[in-house]
Design a protein around this nucleic acid. Sequence first.
DNA 1: GTCAAGCGTTTGTCCTGACAAATGACGTCC
DNA 2: GGACGTCATTTGTCAGGACAAACGCTTGAC
Lengths: 301, 301
Amino acid sequence: MRHAVAKKDGGALPGIPLGRAAPRVIPRGERPGVRYAMALSGQANYARPVTERGNDQPLPLSVDRTSPVPLYFQLARQLEAAVEQGRLAPGTLLGNEIDLAHRLGLSRPTVRQAIQSLVDKGLMVRRRGVGTQVVHSQVRRPLELSSLYDDLETAGQRPGTLVLRNAVEPAGAEAAAALGVPEGSEVHAVERLRSAHGEPVALLRNHLPLGLLPLPTGELEETGLYRLMRAAGITLHSARQSVGARAAAQAEARLLEEHAGAPLLTMERTTYDDTGRAVEFGSHVYRAGRYAFEFQLLVRP
Amino acid sequence: MRHAVAKKDGGALPGIPLGRAAPRVIPRGERPGVRYAMALSGQANYARPVTERGNDQPLPLSVDRTSPVPLYFQLARQLEAAVEQGRLAPGTLLGNEIDLAHRLGLSRPTVRQAIQSLVDKGLMVRRRGVGTQVVHSQVRRPLELSSLYDDLETAGQRPGTLVLRNAVEPAGAEAAAALGVPEGSEVHAVERLRSAHGEPVALLRNHLPLGLLPLPTGELEETGLYRLMRAAGITLHSARQSVGARAAAQAEARLLEEHAGAPLLTMERTTYDDTGRAVEFGSHVYRAGRYAFEFQLLVRP
DNA sequence: GTCAAGCGTTTGTCCTGACAAATGACGTCC
DNA sequence: GGACGTCATTTGTCAGGACAAACGCTTGAC
């Protein structure tokens, strides 16, 4: 499960909620110093910009061939951990793949597979004729397809749910189109008021195909919808989201403890499982001051 | 350049703007029929659920070895086109990799690389012991790090830009933290009013490190900021975004032709190049009815 | 009749080997 | 001194082979 969205924003105004860890001062125009991570076996005097004091540690790397964990994955995890812990500083050049493979007793394809997975995550950049370089650590995970409930919980806010509606009813035009069922056919409709620390945060309206999974009101008040779906054996695969804003209607405002006309953040989402079936259509509104979507985008070459 | 966000929403209300192509009716619980794309060379009588009338066409695939385009990429593009054009229906099983490689005169790793790139895009799902299956065609590209200008232009709206400010000034706390420069140091500040069809759509405030690239006002009125940055040789790598909503302030409202207190969609974004340098911090507000962020999320296994 | 074991299929992982292309630094020529 | 070509380095691409693991179906046993 990767790729997500929706991180809580505790602040009152949507200013700049990103939790920047210790804003590092980088003079403009300067590029992070280049240095090599691994000591090159005394080959040529070529390509050895071991600038920042020659190699603090050679960076311990090893793989366990008796483990059932794939070798490329073991290596990728170690490199990723090294980046996260700062043992591989941004800008550092990884030794070349051939040496690295030889050092670890692996083949080059295996090493490449490990590095490639990190490149895909945005942690490293490869340049032909140059090498593989560690990217600035600002990069976090791309984002995960997570639920509001999980987001609130991991943020330490005690999420609460009030189920306003939980019924089977004819699908409206929007929900029917999103779920790919005929308009007017019966679907499951759920409406919930989600709160954090007892204060309302969002109004969640969801429509699901009938018969996909049981949705007892008790369960809905205890946990999130995605968690229930995953527990029912549904493999979430992709989602299509649309995020906008609008003014609160009277009824919404009352539920969310806002005044009518207050700005609300809106999100419509259709989620698909790995067979391509639409398994959920959600139409959510969030209190503007209480919530913001935060996510990371990667540019793939 | 992949991974993006921000697609125009012409509609007045943030209803369900996704351009669903012909909402296909799929009875609940049904899984798309399984059929094979390629005729299996008359092997065993095993695994041949060529249900839907045995193979309309064997799907023409070929690679050109004289082309400088990598073989795996040629194959990937052909498969992708086949999926998009419906020649590879959702649920279709691709023939096994070995046969496919043999048929095309390629090696299995090359075929795997092609398929893997499509799996990464979310177009296909692999299952050991089963095969590679085409996912529901609902999936579009993951999203690209695009600019509002490009979005409007590709949507056929004639984007216009009015430069309200273009100056060098001391960085405020927010911009300084985002760009990683000391507070109060000089940065480039740009403020633009972006319109479509002559109507204002968004108010764009951007801060850039000094000396990164020249920003003539004339150029800014002609094209988008990202396009200028790319033209200046800057390789955009990742961005951190936060999307929220708030009420319009007086000054904003006047510029955007809204009334004070009207709901606005807000977006803060810090963009990094491939060396990890922050190259742009943007603080944008969009008219709620005129714009919505639309994007696709993929769940990576 | 039901459950477990067996078997073939298919992808997952890994290896060895090879050549091509881009990059950056050096040396040479003008 | 500056422009150019040359060269070593490094990643990109591709081939061919091998074994392991998961899956689905059939077969067999109870």
